[in-house]
Design a binder for these strands. Structure first.
Lengths: 246, 246
DNA sequence: CACCAATCTTGATCTCAATCAAGGTCCTCC
DNA sequence: GGAGGACCTTGATTGAGATCAAGATTGGTG
């Protein structure tokens, strides 16, 4: 876990901080955030924190993918969070990691030391408000995920995961997801299984089935293309009309 | 959904507002909250809001139990939240309910109209901070629940639910859970099934099994007594040492 | 290029919980 | 007290996904 040199980037160069922490880019406390931040990178497979580790920083994801997971006594593990670029990591007011945090690809994070960040939060209300909004969004995502874990079939779970990744991927670049979409799966079959509460064999079988039936196409093991996003959505079991809450 | 007359109660009489909204009881904005609040009651089985309904208030639970749940197209439903006394309901900044909210017992809520509450939140930072804390706690609970849904066996799910209710029940009255505990199950077998991602038959069978083996005793269908809380915890599959995050 | 390890696929079998079905208990209301 | 309905239990059977077990594909390395 090496630290990267402290760099100053202005707002245009730092969409992360803008999206994740600073709801109003022109706010004066930005300068303080700017001075406080530093970068860290982690390599693929590296553990960023174990449950119970002391964490002296909070951070936003700049690039790469990390996962939060929990484990039972006997080793069964369940992923409980997926950190993609612009997501926030760490809990103000808690010194200790509640989950295992693992980089699944190379990861760069924009970090803020916990103490000064918390003080800043106390003195500048809209940072707390922004964090509240983000936390509420995470809670919504967690609840959607609970519906998936509790009530969806293996096939629906796979389709849902593909749709989530495709949608998230598209939202960072293009607009509304529809028609043909392509993306790289950022997760191994095993990580997908941990996400979905399945075994890796079942994941493999269901992915093969969706491929066989033409719902998706595969180039290599990881590059997915979806000829028709709506067709994929049909497989998720979700309400067709509703879509994401705003 | 009838409104109850607007009552003034002082801080000692209103543990809910104190616990849920006002982290520091002596804060001056309390008076504003006090003036703004009103009570509503719902009868057992009544739907408080359907997904998509406009909700013009936020509220804290005073008494009773309510559930948040989500449903797939074909009717499969999963509970995604359980509201017990002192819990907060409603999302500042969102007009529309994201989940079906149902009273499972008679429920009394202490409500605040959304607009004035949001304005108060904007002007008094520590309300936002308190809400952030509560939301982060909910997120932790949701993630624990995800581990349960994704990776626990039916038996472990039942034991976990009983432990959660017992613990929560105890925390409002006595201190640390241990030894003999007694409580009433506030949920039907069907609601338990929706909580745990099981069918009601499986819930019934597993409850019977735990009873047969002496892990719990039943008086009627709903009154549970746990002769030894640690014995019950053994059945949950959780780490024995860790316990709840602080 | 050949080797090795990691990752993924596929097949055979088993198991836990779902499903289908029948009764039982308790409570309320006439 | 008896009828009706909500809620719960238990049994028999089925089925989706787990488990066990080979192999196949991929990519990196000497």
């Amino acid at each position: 876990m090496q630290e990267i040199e402290l760099t100053h980037v202005d707002c245009a160069d730092c969409p992360i901080r803008h999206r994740a922490v600073c709801a109003r880019c022109e706010a004066p406390e930005l300068d303080q955030l700017e001075e406080m931040k530093y970068y860290r990178s982690f390599e693929a497979g590296q553990t960023i924190a174990w449950t119970g580790d002391k964490l002296d920083f909070v951070a936003t994801m700049v690039s790469g993918i990390a996962t939060l997971s929990q484990t039972l006594e006997d080793g069964r593990t369940q992923m409980v969070g997926l950190l993609l670029p612009s997501d926030f990591m760490g809990r103000p007011g808690r010194e200790v990691a509640s989950y295992d945090v693992t980089a699944t690809t190379e990861v760069v994070m924009c970090c803020f030391r916990r103490r000064p960040f918390e003080e800043l939060m106390r003195s500048t209300p809209h940072i707390a408000q922004r964090l509240l909004e983000m936390t509420l969004d995470e809670l919504d995502a967690a609840r959607e995920w609970m519906l998936l874990l509790g009530r969806k079939t293996a096939r629906e779970k796979i389709a849902s995961l593909l749709a989530i990744i495709a949608r998230r991927d598209a939202s960072l670049t293009r607009g509304v997801p529809s028609g043909r979409m392509e993306f790289d799966l950022p997760l191994t079959r095993e990580a997908m299984a941990d996400y979905l509460g399945l075994t890796l064999e079942t994941v493999s079988r269901q992915v093969s089935a969706l491929k066989r039936e033409g719902v998706i196409q595969l180039a290599g093991k990881r590059h997915v293309s979806v000829p028709d996003f709506d067709r994929l959505m049909l497989e998720t079991g979700d309400d067709t009309d509703g879509g994401m809450p705003v």
